[in-house]
């Protein structure tokens, strides 16, 4: 019996008229108070009080307009009930009219679309000839600048063995279409040898491998200093942890000191490990 009252079905609800019919309690100053009793989700009886203010708005319209509102429908609409028919009348998406004194701003998406279509607005595109914002093939200086490029690549050919290889690589790229790094391409600035990266190869360098993980740059310096003055020490370290990766490059000013270091350090025991020292290969 208990279970039955808790599980009130919709059929039971409708029979309980007194419980469910909203009752108008009071009506004053145009505000109607309606009280309604019903069961909530937990089966408890609750009282709902609603206050409804009714405001009648009188609209004055032209007499002719009021008359026309009563006209009967004709043509394809003949016999249709009053009110808009959804087959012909719909409400569209919200649109905005923002009146602005200073003209109309272009919608952002439109600009983006323009950007994508118009290469001149895309910063990613750079002409290889004039560095302008367009494709190289569309460069206005194509005819005038291309001969200059050939002259510079010709100079590169006579520049030295490494740049000759560059020119050869670029020539090969025309045929085989294999990848050529940008700095090796025809028209790229020939290397001047001014950067430290290029000067590094001028010094005699030895490679020391099988270093322990705990090795620091100072340890390598202390190890190699007795053989002569050191130009540069490079110790390969893990980028994140700073732990030694096990190898190092040491450049000396004198070839003789490098040779003696190579002789002594190869097979030298350092931090429980046997070191291996050899001449380092040039970077290219």
């Amino acid at each position: 019996m208990m279970a039955k009252t808790n599980n009130t079905s919709w059929a039971d609800d409708t029979t309980d008229v007194v419980l469910n019919t909203p009752q108008v309690v009071s009506e004053e100053n145009g505000v109607k108070t309606v009280v309604e009793y019903r069961l909530n989700d937990e089966g408890k009886q609750i009282k709902v009080t609603k206050k409804i203010a009714i405001k009648v708005i009188h609209e004055t319209v032209n007499k002719a307009v009021a008359d026309r509102k009563k006209w009967t429908k004709f043509g394809q609409e003949r016999g249709n009930p009053p009110g808009p028919n959804i087959s012909t009348t719909n409400v569209g998406e919200q649109v905005f009219l923002k009146i602005s004194q200073w003209g109309v701003e272009k919608p952002e998406e439109e600009e983006q679309a323009n950007k994508a279509l118009d290469p001149s607005k895309n910063k990613l595109i750079t002409c290889r000839l004039c560095k302008g914002n367009h494709f190289t093939s569309k460069c206005p200086y194509k005819d005038t600048l291309e001969p200059i490029e050939e002259i510079t690549s010709g100079q590169a050919k006579t520049g030295g063995p490494s740049t000759a290889a560059i020119a050869a690589a670029s020539d090969g790229s025309k045929r085989s279409s294999s990848y050529v790094p940008p700095h090796l391409r025809a028209g790229a600035k020939p290397s001047t040898g001014d950067s430290p990266r290029d000067r590094r190869d001028e010094h005699p360098t030895i490679r020391i491998t099988n270093l322990s993980e705990d090795t620091k740059e100072q340890d390598v310096q202390a190890l190699c200093k007795p053989f002569g003055s050191i130009a540069r020490v490079f110790l390969a370290k893990d980028w994140e942890t700073g732990v030694c990766k096990g190898y190092s490059f040491v450049s000396y000013y004198e070839k003789s000191s490098a040779e003696s270091a190579l002789k002594k350090l190869n097979g030298y025991g350092f931090d429980n490990l046997i070191l291996r020292a050899e001449w380092s290969n040039p970077s290219n």
Partner: peptide, 29 residues
């Protein structure tokens, strides 16, 4: 008075609408 809206198109029908709610009043065929 602005309460009726007449529309014509490249089809053969003339439509008249109540402009305040878009209800079609009829067609002229």
């Amino acid at each position: 008075e602005g309460d009726l809206l007449f529309t014509v198109a490249k089809d053969t029908v003339v439509n008249v609408w109540y402009s305040h709610n878009g209800e079609r009043l009829g067609t002229y065929e």
